[in-house]
């Protein structure tokens, strides 16, 4: 249960290897979360998180197996106070241009699988009457750019899905928190030059935990990206398409 001061007890992280996801879990454990379920592909050795950790096998593309992941997680720790949907693949636009099948598969992970996970989470949290689903969206979806429009379009879809889900859950006691980081310097972006207003997984996690405790519906990381994108969304397309990246 979320307590009076915003602390939680149980966390399910889907995408158990996610740097941002693990960083969020680490912070929540430091604030008192006692039991964590990491859902990840096979062969995963969980790091020490300062809490009781369970590992459950999870394959994002095996959407028919998602229900079982939630069933196992609730069996292990009871009510889920926080569910973090953090899995994803980045990939380069060049590669997707050359291999449309790989692009479709990436979209299936970055969007389709999140839809399945989100709906399962919604069912569980609605029945519980409490709990927050944290969805890792991205500024890439706030306005899709030509430099990574496969990835960006999946994130745009995910962001819209998460907004709709949050509205659908209104009044049920369950919530959705949408996290929209800019460029995150980490394993996923290794070899790429950081963009302006980039952040680290830890900064994203700190902002996420603060938003969780405050019960906010969404958070941009860094915060300045919010107002920046309100303006950038209005930029004429002729200008937008000339952006270098």
């Amino acid at each position: 249960m979320k307590n009076a001061l915003g602390g939680v007890d149980t966390v399910l992280l889907l995408g158990g290897r996610s740097e941002i996801g693990l960083e969020i879990v680490r912070l929540l454990a430091g604030l008192g979360a006692g039991r964590v379920v990491l859902a990840a592909r096979d062969g995963f050795d969980p790091p020490d998180l300062g809490a009781e950790v369970h590992v459950v096998p999870f394959d994002a593309l095996d959407v028919h197996g998602h229900g079982a992941v939630f069933a196992r997680a609730t069996e292990l720790v009871g009510d889920l106070d926080v569910v973090i949907s953090a899995f994803g693949v980045l990939g380069t636009q060049e590669r997707y241009d050359a291999d449309p099948a790989a692009a479709a598969e990436a979209v299936a992970v970055n969007y389709g699988a999140h839809v399945s996970v989100g709906l399962h989470a919604a069912r569980v949290l609605r029945e519980q009457g409490h709990g927050t689903l944290v969805v890792l969206s991205s500024v890439a979806g706030a306005r899709v750019r030509k430099a990574n429009f496969v990835y960006g379009s999946a994130k745009a879809g995910l962001d819209g899905f998460a907004q709709g889900l949050g509205d659908a859950l209104h009044g049920s006691g369950a919530r959705v928190l949408i996290v929209r980081p800019g460029f995150v310097i980490g394993r996923m972006t290794k070899g790429l030059a950081p963009a302006p207003m980039s952040s680290t997984p830890r900064q994203v996690a700190l902002a996420t935990v603060a938003a969780l405790r405050a019960g906010a519906p969404s958070v941009w990381v860094p915060r300045a990206l919010g107002p920046a994108f309100r303006v950038l969304r209005l930029l004429p397309r002729a200008l937008w398409r000339r952006l270098p990246r």
């Binding site: 249960m1 979320k2 307590n3 009076a4 001061l5 009457g129 409490h130 009044g171 049920s172 006691g173």
Partner: peptide, 15 residues
């Protein structure tokens, strides 16, 4: 109904 205790924190719904 959403219920809380006297401290008015952490409301949750119940029948």
């Amino acid at each position: 109904t959403f219920l809380t205790g006297w401290g008015r924190t952490a409301p949750t719904p119940a029948r």
